[in-house]
Nucleic acid binder design. Sequence first.
DNA 1: ATGAAAGCGCTAACAT
DNA 2: ATGTTAGCGCTTTCAT
Lengths: 340, 340
Amino acid sequence: MRVPATIRDVARASGVHISTVSRTFSAPHLVNPETRSRVLACAEHLGYRPNRAARALITGRTHNIGLIVADIANPFFPPLIKAAESQARHRDYHIFVTDTNEDPAVEEDLVHALAKQVDGVLLCSPRMSNSLIEQLSREVPLVVINRQVTGLPAVVMDVGQGARLAVEHLTGLGHRRIALLGGPRGSWTNREIRRAATAAARAGDAELIVLGPNQPTEQGGLAQADPVRRAGATAVLAYNDLMAIGLIEGLDSLGVRVPEDVSVVGIDDIALSRLTRPKLTTVANPTAAAGRAAVDMLLQHGDDRRTTAQVTLQTELVIRDSTGPAPAALPAVTEATVKE
Amino acid sequence: MRVPATIRDVARASGVHISTVSRTFSAPHLVNPETRSRVLACAEHLGYRPNRAARALITGRTHNIGLIVADIANPFFPPLIKAAESQARHRDYHIFVTDTNEDPAVEEDLVHALAKQVDGVLLCSPRMSNSLIEQLSREVPLVVINRQVTGLPAVVMDVGQGARLAVEHLTGLGHRRIALLGGPRGSWTNREIRRAATAAARAGDAELIVLGPNQPTEQGGLAQADPVRRAGATAVLAYNDLMAIGLIEGLDSLGVRVPEDVSVVGIDDIALSRLTRPKLTTVANPTAAAGRAAVDMLLQHGDDRRTTAQVTLQTELVIRDSTGPAPAALPAVTEATVKE
DNA sequence: ATGAAAGCGCTAACAT
DNA sequence: ATGTTAGCGCTTTCAT
């Protein structure tokens, strides 16, 4: 790879000053059409491309947006990422995605690393503390997704409402003993779900058993199959679809049938939830809309720093095949184990 | 957000020259411990962080790596991404992931956009032409994953071997009419699979019917359910697990049972393939190893540009529940429809 | 319409 | 051990 051509090489080759070359690329209308085409030809010939980093140093705009997610392997994120990317592309921006591995320390490190290379960062389902987020927001413009931080623009999906609908659906089916499979520590969403589910259970005259915190993965759900059975719950609301699917898998190998013995509700409505057997009843999160909204907020944010709006997106209960009427009696297995 | 502190602010506050501040961060051993701690204190107090972009401009090293994938929503990629990230982190590098939406034009645009902001780009399952890739490699160091481009370092998974094993498995089970669900246009992997499957089918005295190209998604697989049935195939090898899962779904709604009527083999061994019913027989791709290898190649690459090695990783057939003996006769449905 | 000059934030010789 | 100087590649006044 030979060394890339700079603006100076192009200037020399086309016999003009570097500022003219610069204008040719960043303000073409300011340069004589003839000169322009000559410069363009030389640039083309030399394989010249403006150095975006150098440009950013002086303009203060990189035209990049950072997007930090907890776990790129969680199917919840890709639709959000893709929506954000397409929205960004329309506005002539690029999205750089990074994964924190659910680790708050990595999260912080990534914000610092991205800070000067992007015009802002979308912090998606962060696991770190609010105060740290506030502090980091002084280093680079931040938009938070799935978290409310005072003073910062945020996009949240009203998962509390979704959890309420889910629990109402279950109590409506006669369930009186409902387990909640909690998500990871530090998750705002997790707290919202718990708060809403607790209230809805009380209102529906049902008991809510909280199991967790758990890893928000199939494994996390799978591991709770036995605890769910022992708790004697006839219905379960899981922190997300992945856990719900893992749980169903685990219940299945314990001989517990879904939904005949136990009803299961997930949250997110990932594509996969339509492909499993039984198809998953779940709370649909408008992830794509959230991605778009976050990009919009970040970009308009630049113009007027006072509009730190917080957008709340509605969720929706999608009833499929993993929920059904509460069984007449508790599942037989439970009778023996519950008194341990 | 107040304007971020620069090296000059820190210099002024601590009463030293900016070069001393610079050294404090990039070569601490060259500065007097006392001075150092004073500078550090001032930096801390001012919230100063070195501007990585400015630093990169002069050092020529960004400590970033770009990773371009065709579709972040395809579960094939996340394990590769995560492995690459963790490997990069160990070497004090950050990975920026971008998604091309399976669009070659976006792919090219992203290479340009990333070029000066990263020290190299990992091009994962590219859809663009070899010649374009070669040309782009003059702009920024490239490591190609799942493609062989002469003169460029590459990491490929030996999917040809995997496809051969899969077809041998099927012919061994008595299948003589096998359908191949092709993947997207422009995919090197797709060509490899087709080549190997064709050869293996011939060797196994079986007929190979190629259906495609298709979108490498559940939808793509689902849409081929009817064609597969009409073709009278008793076994199918799909371009990837997603398509295999979609196909099984589609066959199911046509009343075709898997594996009793039709055997299905996927490729990739995504986590999901263990969770579907039936569990998917598939060719396991060492994606994590590929991600790590690619990062290593890119980083050592810098030292010696002549070592443009091409690494080939082995694949493996994982036999689960979606394959079985060929039915004695063709499935009943087929008899009626095949003559249309 | 083009050129000259300054400078974005930083590092890297070279002095001292 | 620290300061001086030049300059990475580019944009942006300000002249001409």
